[in-house]
Design a protein around this nucleic acid. Structure first.
Length: 860
RNA sequence: GCCUGGGUGGCGGAACAGGUAGACGCAAGGGACUUAAAAUCCCUCGGAGCAUAGCUCUGUGCGGGUUCAAUUCCCGCCCCAGGUACCA
């Protein structure tokens, strides 16, 4: 019988669907395992990134299931977001229709991959049955002050026509479309993520199951720094300029003051002065500059003297005040004390404006001279020119100076963060409505809980002009105030879609529960936290930080019992492929190229040196449907796992896919070959006396079970697990075919074949189910216990001992495993080759590493 | 600049507590089967050298060090990828 993947895959998928094989419920007698992959955005078609991500997850889910765990493995749809709205404008199709059609299509594709999801838990975040709870949580957060509205300057993407959170601005560009981000002043809803800032930071050190680099990125993003707020009195009149610094050790060296150009102080200080006009012009210039900020690498440090002075609080010396383009208005106080000798930016500024330099930190190994310094000195040293603190090491004087400032009432200790509150208002239609009402009399009033959900209206029209259709839809906006009964209007902003993905993992525990608060506590307590979360590294900050924050909020609202949502995190690499480029026609699909020539113009094409992330625009994508049609889902799955360990990028190789397919064929044929002979033979049991080649095969079988179990369990290294099974299959091919009547030999072969099939069952579930059935089993492989290795059968009787002379490999000997050290050392030296090499040499010592090698050290 | 990772054959990758470098697969070459091809099965496969059934030297980005022994540990550098960037 030939291996026909398409027939057997559809057969088993149908069975899984009909029998609801992977449906789970809470079972207190079994240990739970919650495995989750990041849910997809329903863009219309799955791509290789999905195939890889979901295959990795599926292997772990199926493996844990065979190990006896009660495995929750759900899937759903991150269904709100921009593309649906864009499709509505371009193709005159309602976002809802577009989204649900895409879901139907992608669901079919996922089922065709054979993933072991509990489809009864499927959810879509655009369902009112989902987001109504999010609206409830919003109201509860509002009541606790964790959601608030504020007029503020926000990041705005003109193309997406909406606001972006700080985290959604990448290098000054919109994370989604890459457009330059501009600033806008708007009334916005925020989540007070800063209320949890210390807990978020602290738990970065309590997530040992997370990759170090993800935690490092989150820590950086939070950006906690310890320092002082110091007051610099103005020279004229009352008042002072407050600055934040982490370098109070350099305070005696502060010779001028820098203020962010946008800071109100700039206008205040120059009002009525001759320089006022110039200063205003400068401010306007910097504001414009600001928009261009990150598009150029660096721009010139610029500043303007404000014709005002303040006083250094410790030395009393006069410090000129400048407006500067490189001081950030929204970090610290927007004002910075400048210490040109020990800060490179201040140094450059001082040189440009010819400002005084005072050395206050002196290194041990050289003498700094303010007149000849070519750059700022930023390393450790001893304080000089610093009054009572002279002679102390700068890194140790920070506390003393902070104490002094506090005692003198000139400053105080403080902590600064980089992380800002999460702006969640979006001026878009296709999102969860913010359940708030604006009343002229009562102000902002939450929608009463009994009136939830605030359903997104269906009858809207989209125009290419953009803007949210909600903001002009009278029947949605007009309402009455729940408090005073008067006329009022609804909030027309919707929530950032990252809000939906911040709690979907909890909803999966009780996806249909429709009683407040939408999360059935018993179920949530049983399943949460997620034991293993798998997804792309691109969400290292955005989604993963928001989800951690939201989980803590839900905990404090009393609806979940966990503090952190994801115990273990695996970030898988991207799927990459080389690009083909024609000098005239740009990127080409492989089928547009023949003999390295462009099919359109015949010119030589350029193939990229390294593979790059698959993307439609680079035309280097591989269509999963095509793969499945040609080779089957099992081949697609095993290739994705075999080509690279999960955290590496995966370089696509068409030849590699064929190799994967070839291996499955090899497995199929070896089973098929032996089928007749082993039909009525039982698997070997006990520890019978076996001839050498059979004993070796049996040993290989048990060693393979041991290795595959460890590779999957401990490291998710499926590539080495697959290699191990390949070796076992190779060993089966290498074995001399025993006689049909040799029951003992055939029982050993059956054991090896069954092991190979079961060990591959989580990886290639269709072919293995079929083979398992063919081998005469009524219980499906998926419901069969994971094989256990027999220590005795796996252990070697003989071992190879490597013999080195002065660390160089010179010979090998075989000895029984129980051979004692002295015998081995003696045998090693008596080995024919070694003895010859040792003749006449002076042996200094002989080292024996148990079970590994003997190293004879001789005088050279 | 700073913070993470990472540099191993022609390629993807093994070597998981310092102990046989290159498992497994791809590509390549050879052979068997076949009228032929495909498919399949088997063999060879880091480099150099030689008295070529084998042996020797060399080899894990570069330079040092520790050790009987280093892809693995330490120090210094180079390169690549990701993150972040005037954060005071």
């Amino acid at each position: 019988m030939k291996y026909d993947p398409l027939v057997i895959e559809e057969k088993w998928q149908k069975k899984w669907e009909e029998e609801k094989t992977f449906k789970v419920t809470e079972d207190r007698d079994k240990k739970k395992y919650y495995l989750l992959e990041m849910f997809p955005y329903p863009s219309g078609r799955i791509h290789m990134g999905h195939v890889r991500n979901y295959t990795i997850g599926d292997v772990v889910a199926r493996y844990k299931r065979m190990k006896g765990f009660n495995v929750l493995h759900p899937i759903g749809w991150d269904a709100f977001g921009m593309p649906a709205e864009n499709a509505a404008i371009e193709n005159r199709i309602h976002p809802s229709k577009w989204t649900y059609e895409n879901i139907a299509q992608m669901k079919k594709q996922l089922k065709r991959m054979g993933f072991s999801y509990d489809w009864d838990r499927e959810l879509a975040t655009c369902d009112a049955g989902y987001y109504r709870w999010e609206q409830l949580f919003f109201i509860w957060m509002y009541e606790k002050g964790l959601a608030y509205k504020k007029r503020s300057s926000v990041n705005f993407c003109v193309k997406c026509d909406t606001v972006l959170a700080n985290e959604q601005v990448e290098g000054g560009l919109c994370w989604r479309c890459g457009t330059d981000v501009t600033e806008k002043v708007l009334d916005q809803w925020f989540f007070k993520i800063t209320a949890y800032i210390d807990e978020l930071l602290e738990y970065c050190d309590r997530l040992p199951g997370w990759p170090e680099r993800v935690l490092a990125m989150q820590k950086n993003w939070i950006g906690k720094s310890f320092g002082c707020l110091v007051d610099f009195p103005l020279e004229e009149g009352p008042g002072a300029i407050q600055v934040f610094t982490t370098r109070q050790d350099t305070l005696y060296g502060a010779t001028f003051m820098l203020v962010a150009a946008e800071h109100p102080l700039v206008t205040e200080l120059t009002r009525g002065k001759p320089c006022e006009k110039d200063v205003q012009a400068f401010v306007e210039k910097v504001k414009k500059q600001d928009k261009m900020k990150r598009t150029s690498d660096y721009y010139e440090k610029e500043g303007l003297f404000l014709d005002s002075y303040c006083l250094n609080p410790l030395t009393g010396s006069k410090m000129p005040i400048f407006a500067a383009n490189f001081v950030l208005a929204d970090y610290g106080t927007g004002c910075v004390m400048a210490v040109p000798t020990h800060d490179q930016r201040d140094f450059e500024f001082a040189k440009k404006f010819n400002l005084p330099l005072i050395v206050v930190i002196q290194p041990e190994d050289k003498e700094l001279d303010a007149n000849t310094m070519a750059e700022a000195y930023v390393d450790e040293g001893y304080l000089v020119n610093s009054g009572q603190f002279n002679g102390m090491l700068n890194t140790q004087v920070l506390d003393a100076i902070a104490d002094y400032l506090e005692k003198e009432g000139k400053g105080k200790r403080t902590v600064q963060y980089r992380l800002r509150d999460w702006g969640i208002s979006r001026q878009r239609y296709w999102g969860a409505p913010i359940p708030m009402i604006n009343c002229e009399k009562c102000g902002i009033v939450p929608v009463p809980e009994k009136d939830l959900p605030v359903v997104l209206p269906q009858n809207v029209t989209f125009t290419p002009a953009g803007g949210s259709p909600l903001s002009t839809l009278a029947e949605f906006i007009n309402t009455t105030c729940p408090r005073c009964g008067g006329r009022a209007s609804r909030e027309t902003d919707t929530m950032d879609t990252f809000v939906e993905s911040s709690w979907y993992f909890a909803r999966y525990c009780s996806p249909k529960y429709d009683v407040t608060p939408g999360l059935e506590r018993q179920a949530v307590d049983y399943w949460m936290p997620v034991d293993q979360y798998i997804g792309g590294i691109e969400h290292a900050i955005l989604h993963l930080l928001y989800a951690r924050f939201y989980t803590k909020v839900l905990r404090d609202l009393g609806v979940v019992g966990v503090t952190e949502p994801f115990t273990n995190l695996l970030t898988q690499g991207m799927v990459c492929k080389k690009t083909i480029e024609c000098p005239e026609h740009g990127y080409l699909f492989p089928e547009q190229v023949a003999d390295n020539k462009c099919g359109l113009c015949g010119r030589e094409v350029l193939i990229s040196e390294t593979p790059v992330k698959m993307s439609k625009s680079l035309k280097n994508v591989v269509d999963p449907d095509y793969l499945v049609k040609t080779y089957g889902a099992d081949t697609a799955r095993i290739f994705c796992l075999f080509a690279a360990p999960p955290e590496n990028d995966l370089d696509w190789s068409d030849k590699g896919v064929e190799g994967a397919f070839r291996f499955l064929g090899r497995l199929w044929r070896i089973v098929d070959d032996y089928l007749e002979d082993i039909k009525s033979v039982a698997t070997v049991s006990g520890s019978p006396e076996l001839a050498d080649d059979l004993k070796n095969l049996r040993r290989k079988t048990h060693q393979t079970i041991r290795k595959v179990s460890a590779d999957i369990e401990d490291r998710f290294h499926f590539n080495t697990a697959i290699s191990a099974v390949m070796e076992l299959v190779n060993a089966l091919y290498a074995l001399k075919r025993p006689d049909k009547t040799d029951q003992v030999a055939l029982s050993v072969i059956r054991e090896a074949l069954e092991a190979a099939v079961l060990l591959l069952a989580p990886i290639v579930p269709h072919i293995t189910e079929e083979l398992w059935q063919t081998l005469g089993h009524d219980t499906p492989a998926a419901d069969t216990a994971w094989p256990v290795f027999d220590q005795a059968a796996a252990s070697e009787e003989q071992m190879t001992i490597v013999i080195q002379i002065n660390g160089k490999l010179r010979s090998r000997i075989m000895v029984p495993v129980d051979c004692d050290a002295e015998t081995i050392k003696a045998d090693a030296q008596n080995d024919e080759r070694i003895a010859a090499l040792l003749a006449g040499a002076k042996i200094l010592k002989v080292i024996y590493v148990p079970k590994k090698l003997v190293n004879v050290v001789v005088a050279s």
